[in-house]
Design a binder for these strands. Sequence first.
RNA 1: GCCCACGUAGCUCAGGGGAUUAGAGCAUCGGUUUCCGGAGCCGAGGGUCGCAGGUUCGAAUCCUGCCGUGGGUACCA
Length: 597
Amino acid sequence: MISKLFSDIQRAAADAVKTQYDIDIDPSILSVQETRKEFEGDYTLVVFPLAKFKLGAPPVIGETLGKFLIEKLDFVDSYNVIKGFLNLKMTDAFWGSFLAHAAEGDAFLRREEGKGQKVVVEYCSPNTNKPLHLGHLRNIVLGASITEILKANGYQVHPVCLFNDRGTAISKSMHAWMVAGKEDTPESTGIKGDLLVGNYYVEYAKLNDIEIQQLIEEGVKEVEAKKKAPSSLAVQEILIKWENGDKEIRALWENMNSWVYKAYHHTFKRLGISFEKLYYESQLYQLGKEAVMKGLESGAFYKKDDGSVWVDLTDEGLDHKLLLRSNGTSVYITQDIATADVRFQDYGMDRSVYVVGNEQDYHFKVLFLILKKLGYSFSEGLHHLSYGMVDLPTGKMKSREGKAVDADDLLDQMEQTAKEVTEELGKTEGMDEEALGTLYQNIALSALKYFLVKVDPQKRMLFDPNESVDIQGHTGPFIQYAYTRTASIKRKAETVAPFKDNLPLELPLQENERFLLRRLANYPEVLQEAADQYTPSLIANYAYELAKDYNRFYHGDKILHSAHPATSAFRFTLSNFAGSIMKEAMRLLGISMPERM
RNA sequence: GCCCACGUAGCUCAGGGGAUUAGAGCAUCGGUUUCCGGAGCCGAGGGUCGCAGGUUCGAAUCCUGCCGUGGGUACCA
């Protein structure tokens, strides 16, 4: 809607230049933007770029164009020129018409761009040897929201999760558990399964470090010591036994994973996320070899004398990359090739999005080039949604040192805070115990998810566990609170008829109303940009700005009891519309809106 | 060494060619409730936009170099 408006203005301005100065210009050189707050107007045409045609001083050109536009475009009410900026004020009728139409149905909330295109989004994808921590949470929130954002843009989206359920990580926990006496279970200890397994992972790391230290003191070189430490050797043995299908090892492996999955599914449920399909590395890791063989046949890869298989990426500015070890076993990237292939068989997707931390930027660059070489039809639609780590004030979060913020603990803590603040405010009379529990959970999730998603994914972010996540200011609960105001207004206004396009506005629009309308009109653009750039933070920041604009509007003239019924109808419809956009924007972030809080 | 990302107020972050005064939140200080919900609203103080060049009518924004931080550069995942 705005993009069409902007191009209308640009075209009219280009026409003006043609008729007034007899010069043909490309309309797109005249950029249109929102008028800055301190000036009068809604949208601004920048006329500086015309300077190079030597038509005169920019302010004079601005005047000429302004006069022309006000004649030609019936939605332009007035204009003013400051330096090379032509500020255009839209008519009240324009805004009235916008509101009446946009607020009707939900066409305004959806875009068609991705219609007919299938996208697979892989996110979360944990190693199953430890609890989900704050870093996973950032991943999950990004993955879940990009899924919804793409859907709202018309794509058919399939969210999937890949469990890295085998390999050295889980084997370390297994070894420590066996060393400790093969006794503890989640049931016997009362410790949730992922944490229990994670504790053994920490135990392993401690044991391993001590052994290495000892060897070094005995004069063994560090590199050697890491390989020769008894626990390191034990893990290698576990890996081999696992591959050979050793009964005892397989049983323990299944058992430990089941503890972890049980806990994960509980956490997933709590976070309100679900996947369409779960993939397991243990079922995929052997398929890589076939894929590599195909590439070998087609000439995309090459074989060295020792039997190892490589891909040459020097043409793309990278180096040679190993795909298959000389002993025939696969490496990390081999599995990813296979996984992409399996996924294509499952979904026939046009695009594939991987939500993975930015320490793997290079890995995905390589993977995407390889998939392209192999000629996959979806290789043009690959995207790595890369995000920065969540750091603690003490540095990186490290599971192996037990230095991580557990997702469930954090949520417990935040629900408590939400409860305290809500009770203090006392707006929840009449809600039963269960509804209150849901509400606290909702507020806690909103604070946490919003905190994680509002920052540009590319940037690292800092989390201080000693300072709990805010619920005031630029936060999820702030936006929820603004929404509950719209809900409250709605409850109290059953008799107010909605505003229709044919109704007159008895008063000229107030500044706060215009700002709010402008913000709302911009929603489809933000929705598109968030999808095009795979950046949910754009939606988050938009929702915040919208809530702020709404609060200013709310603190202005009365919505329901204004002097004229037509004005009340208009303000009421505006309030409701703002509420539904807030709700939709937050839904895209995986946050639901309470009606009261 | 080479490659990538990041560097904006005390702290956490927006803005990513455009306006004189670079915006928010937190923290600090002040105002605001007989009136639709004060988790709010209004205001004050606080900035060499890492540094130096360049491109441009115009640079926090684009380019180059340097500095700082983090990550990558494994027959690890």
